[in-house]
Write a protein that binds this DNA or RNA. Sequence first.
DNA 1: ATGACTGGTTGGACCAGA
Length: 257
Amino acid sequence: MKIATFNINGINRRFGNLMAWLADAAPDVVCLQETKATDRQFPATALADAGYGAVWRGESGWNGVAILARGAEPILTREELPGNPDDGQARYIEAAVNGVLIACLYAPNGNPRPGPKFDYKMAWTGRLLAHAGELWATDLPVVLAGDYNIVPEPRDIYQTTSYRDNALVQPESRALFARLLAQGWTDALRARHPDETVYTFWDYMRNRWPRNAGLRLDHLLLSRELARKLKAAEVDREVRGREGASDHAPAWIELKV
DNA sequence: ATGACTGGTTGGACCAGA
């Protein structure tokens, strides 16, 4: 079973890129972030024509998340992160596919810092930590996949000082990610590549892709049982180099299921 | 500190991303 996460940065603007990658990679499950489409604008019919069932939650202009399943209909279990009924941003969706609980998340960026956006990042990611703790306690097979907007360690970003004050690399941000791992979750990409540099995002600006000036922001965290079944974890880097690409590349895992 | 890239919402600069 192959499960991917991909910050698509506009599903309709980049529908051709998405279709080409789906045809090549043939993932069983795809977590999408930044669909930037309202629920009505979501291209459910075209995805169904390509063989993918979907659940989605969008809003106008920004954010938006979706879970696709090849030859199946995901069974929706949640469409918001618990803990704040006043938070209307479309950043979380959760569904069961083939016996695996898939959590698709798009954590807030948090810039500029300090300020209300950074406070929101901390609060939202804190709510994620709480929910992840509850999921861990169920002992279900769970994948927490998405754009966490956190660079876990210094080696997960290219050599630079330009991100020094950025929300993505702050000790408070990294501490939240570390607390997730401390619950027991396995960071699949790092587990399969303990000594390699792995990036999933390259800014559009300043030739960051040709220079390989990247960051690792997209993560797949695995529950205990699924970690034992992990066969492979990779980033489809070449997708970032295509015409009209998102600024993120897809990351995926292969499970023995 | 600023600018540089891209998408979306608009009807034009502006917000947001990271």
